[in-house]
Amino acid sequence: MKMKNILLGLLFSAFAATSLASSGLTGQAAPDFALKSASGENLRLSEYRGDVVMVNFWATWCGPCRQEMPLLDELYSRYGRVGFSLLGVNIDDNSSKAMNMVSELGVSFPVLFDSNKAVSKLYEVDAMPVTVLIDREGTVRYVHLGYKPGYEEKYLDQIRSLLRE
């Protein structure tokens, strides 16, 4: 009986470990996508191969996104010329609200619209904001769910280490 319980426990933990590993994108090739940007051009992730890319999923109704975006813009203006790209993916149904917020916050990084949520599904976005860091080879290296003050320090360290690779 005891042996059976131990075996069941082992099986369960193995299953849990597998499902946990398969749910994350970390270490996987970043799923490619193309979206319409606020400037009117279509941008495709795979065309940024060779750069360290941050994909930030955000929405106008998300308070932490509003806090985070100007800080991300600082990172973008600081590291943009040394091979760092930032794509802000807005998931609102109505892109005009997003446009207003972008101009209000004055961010300079490209903002893309994922109104039909196809890309959010691809990246398993189930929190807001979600920030994904992709290395020069196109592999997802870090995924951050939500935003709390101080996260930008983590982003800074991770971007610097990925740029050095």
């Binding site: 193309a34 979206l35 319409k36 051009e41 279509n42 941008l43 495709r44 065309e47």
Partner: peptide, 20 residues
């Protein structure tokens, strides 16, 4: 800008072209 394909009424592809 984009091409959308439907075969027998069912959407099968919607491709956005980048400038490149």
């Amino acid at each position: 800008d984009s091409v959308n394909l439907k075969i027998d009424g069912k959407e099968v592809a919607n491709y956005l072209y980048t400038e490149r």
